[in-house]
Simulated assay, not measured.
Amino acid sequence: MVQVTFHDNRVTLPNKEVKVGDQIPNFTVLDNDLNPVTAQDTAGKVRLFTVSPSLDTSVCSDQAKRFSKEASTLGDDVAVYYVTCDLPFAQKRWVEVNEAKNLTTLSDHRDLSFGEAFGVTMQELRLLARSIFVVDENDKVTYVEYVPEGTNHPNYDKAIEAVKELTK
Rank of each mutant, 00 (worst) to 15 (best):
V51S: 04
P25K: 09
F27A: 01
V120W: 04
P36N: 13
T42A: 13
D136H: 04
L48M: 08
S54W: 01
R126T: 11
L34W: 14
T50F: 13
H109D: 12
D62F: 14
A129P: 11
V51G: 03
E124L: 05
G115M: 04
V144F: 04
V78Q: 00
D77H: 09
A64I: 10
D56C: 12
A90G: 08
P88Y: 00
D139W: 05
R130D: 01
E96D: 14
I132M: 15
V134Y: 12
F114G: 01
V120T: 13
V120R: 05
T105F: 15
T50W: 06
L74I: 02
V141I: 08
E124F: 08
D76G: 11
V46S: 00
N98I: 06
D86H: 10
N138E: 06
V80Q: 03
N32M: 14
Q123E: 11
R93K: 13
I132G: 00
F27I: 02
A71M: 03
G115V: 08
G75Y: 08
K69N: 11
K92W: 02
Y81C: 06
G115C: 06
L106W: 04
E99T: 14
G75M: 09
R93A: 10
E116L: 11
K92L: 09
T142W: 01
D111G: 14
D41V: 08
A39V: 08
G75S: 04
P36K: 12
V120N: 04
T28W: 08
L55D: 09
N98C: 04
E96Y: 14
S107F: 01
T73L: 12
S113W: 08
T104Y: 10
Y143T: 00
S68D: 13
D41F: 14
T121E: 07
Y81F: 15
E137I: 06
V59H: 09
C60R: 00
L55G: 09
V80E: 04
K65N: 13
D62Y: 10
V78C: 07
S72D: 10
V95I: 15
L74T: 01
F118P: 05
T73Q: 13
R66I: 05
